[in-house]
Amino acid sequence: MKFWPSIGRLRWGWFLLGAAVMLLWPVFFDTHTPTILLVWALFALSLGLMWGYAGLLSFGHTAYFGLGAYVYAISVVNIGESTVPLLLAILIPAIVAAIIGAMMFYGRISDVYMGVITLVVSLILFKFMSATAGDQYAIGDARLGGFNGIPGFAVLNVPGLPDVSLFGVPMYYVAAVALLGCYLISRWLLARSFGRVLVGIRENEARCELLGYSVPAYKTAIFSISAAMAGLAGCLFANWAEIVTPSVFSLRSAAEVIIWVIVGGLGTLVGPILGAIVLGMLKLLLSEQTVIDNSLILGFILVVVVLAIPRGVVPALQGWFGKRTRIRTQRAVHVRARRRVAAPAPGRTS
């Protein structure tokens, strides 16, 4: 069985189309806003992979996004060249998630407690980072800066060439390549036994255990992989914003990414990406006006989607297109069958 309908597969045509649009965009348009939209999309992808396929909801995925941002800022201030800080910004969130995940999953806590613990972790980081205003809170040369955060660190450079900064359009390309790369990695994981077992665990954990799979090991692994992607997104966010403040851990952003994933569609990879891009853009547009509070509108959209299309926008569209093509092919078959009946059999004359 090369193909599992319940997981779906990489559609090269759509992928190449999306990649082409993303890569050609800077030729025609400004890249400042699109860069952050791609970063948010990557963040949503990281949550969508774990939640949609393994059924694990992290209420505080900002913990790993924020860790990625802080780890990058702190280590680039100390090191200067950005290659190692970039790798650390992926690795450290992954390790932290592996530790927290192992404690949760081998400890066999229920889903509700998992939600609580992940949320508490990001709240603790938020509180802690907000309270680091004094001079004594420094890691090497990097002062944590409390609520004001860490400003003015070096942005990514071409690996090995500290003087060549990836700023502006090159930064956009870094974000685009990161998103496309993580998408391909996710698809690859899902096409392997690993991804299939994850889906099995989402559907029936007890049964997977009775088939001989070590459920906690699988959950810990996907949690860590997801945190690595979130950390990368956080690192890119730090580069885009050129400042890291405790707000990267905020409850508000933790809720936002969950909404992007739900609205875009759980159980798909494209859904979270599109959800983040569309709702992220909406958020930016709304923040330019002061008539209506924009979290009100985001909340409204969430309620409408959950009530009207509970599966999310992308799965609903897929279902709709799927049905239409099925009906069309069925109709074609019927028409052909009818023609065959209507046509006189060859050789017979009336």
């Binding site: 319940s6 036994s193 077992v197 889906v199 088939l211």
Partner: peptide, 27 residues
């Protein structure tokens, strides 16, 4: 019955077979 309700019959069987068989033999 403890089965994976959201998956197809063949997908259920595949997960059962995969634990004891190599990727190529599961089909």
């Amino acid at each position: 019955p403890s089965v994976m309700n959201g998956l197809t019959v063949m997908e259920n069987l595949w997960l059962a077979a995969r634990r004891t068989h190599g990727w190529d033999r599961c089909g």
